[in-house]
């Protein structure tokens, strides 16, 4: 643990332009705990305003290659681009192969591109627990555009929808059919559908199925469809235009503001839940938990009553602790 002052000093360094300080702050976010909490507090007064673009889709759809080509395209417009690329951690060993950079080779060494590979570290939902904090670090450091690439997802890993301002869902020709296109989940969160590898067979059918599904949406919720061949850089100008159009429209309609508010609620819930879980684990491992477990084992108390008592004790002891210290803000796990 480095301590609040050390974290604040690192934030000042990063905001001043130090890339290594920026990188170390993302590690601080990844480690979690008190320093990560201090980081959030230190970021608050920094301001900054960046726009985030999520890139999601199944494994092998070409997300990293698309991220690379899109970075090139945005760079051509003079934009500095940061990219957070998430790959899965092993649930067995916690190890990970973070391979997104292999597709991002054209940007290696470019001072106007910042790339950070993140392991999901057990967090479900397609992003890492620290991805949103990392985005805020980049925002504070003045990176105007942040691309966030998820792990390869299935139908229900949708964190990116809450975490970013424009969501690209990447599909390929020959993917699914009209039934798949109408399913709930992934297909609902797209602001733009990208049919990547569009030089492959089956493009027409895929576009037709998507169009049919989109036609059944409410009029204000009809994502654009863009065809790309990311390996060749084809279709990226159209994608950039579609992103700009969505950004304008979301801003004008108030959708952007609404989304950022939903994002705050979601993040608040996640963090509060994490804190509750920690407190619960503490309670379970302590004398109160031991006593309840014993009573359940001896069949003196039914399991549901035990659970209710545990929760009641937890809420009680938590508010007492906060009151006794007079400052619940300092009550970090």
């Amino acid at each position: 643990m480095a301590g609040d002052n050390a974290v604040a000093a690192l934030v000042a360094e990063a905001v001043g332009g130090s890339r290594s300080a920026l990188a170390r702050l993302i590690s601080t976010a990844e480690r979690g705990g008190d320093d990560a909490a201090a980081l959030e507090a230190a970021l608050l007064p920094c301001g900054g305003n960046s726009y985030s673009i999520g890139i999601t889709g199944a494994p092998g759809a070409g997300k990293s290659t698309l991220a690379s080509a899109l970075t090139t395209e945005l760079q051509a417009g003079g934009e500095r681009v940061a990219l957070l690329a998430v790959d899965p951690s092993s649930p067995l060993t916690r190890g990970a192969i973070l391979g997104d950079r292999v597709r991002l080779q054209p940007h290696l060494g470019n001072p106007d591109v910042f790339i950070r590979s993140m392991a999901s570290r057990g967090h479900l939902g397609g992003l890492a627990m620290a991805t949103c904090t990392a985005r805020r670090v980049l925002e504070a450091c003045g990176w105007p555009l942040v691309l966030i690439e998820t792990v390869g997802v299935g139908q229900a890993e949708l964190d990116v929808a809450g975490a970013t301002d424009t969501v690209l869902v990447v599909l390929n020709p020959g993917w699914g059919d009209e039934m798949q296109a109408n399913k709930a989940g992934l297909m609902e969160i797209a602001d733009i559908f990208v049919i990547n590898k569009a030089d492959r067979a089956g493009l027409e059918a895929t576009r037709r199925d998507l169009e049919a599904a989109i036609a059944a949406n409410a009029p204000e919720r009809r994502p654009a469809i863009v065809e790309t061949v990311a390996t060749e850089g084809t279709g990226l100008d159209a994608l950039r235009a579609a992103i700009a159009a969505h950004r304008e429209q979301a801003k004008a309609s108030g959708e952007l503001e609404r989304r950022r508010r939903v994002r705050a609620v979601t993040e608040l819930r996640d963090l509060a839940r994490a804190r509750l879980e920690l407190a619960l684990e503490g309670q379970l491992a302590g004398p109160a938990g031991e006593a309840l477990a014993g009573a359940v084992t001896r069949r003196e108390l039914d399991i549901d009553s035990a659970a209710r008592r545990l929760v009641a004790d937890l809420l009680n002891s938590d508010s007492q602790r906060g009151a006794s210290r007079g400052d619940p803000e300092q009550d970090t796990p």
Binding site: R19, S20, A23, R24, I26, S27, S89, S90, T93, R94, G95, A96, I97, L98, G99, R101, V102, Q105, L108, G109, F114, I115, R116, S117, A119
Partner: peptide, 27 residues
């Protein structure tokens, strides 16, 4: 290394200055 619990960041072929930049950005 992955199976031993490390997070391994692959960058492929890279020039010396690119290795340095990546080692900083990836901390």
């Amino acid at each position: 290394l992955r199976d031993a619990g490390f997070e391994v960041i692959m960058i492929g072929m890279a020039r010396p200055e690119e290795v340095v930049q990546a080692s900083i950005d990836e901390d």
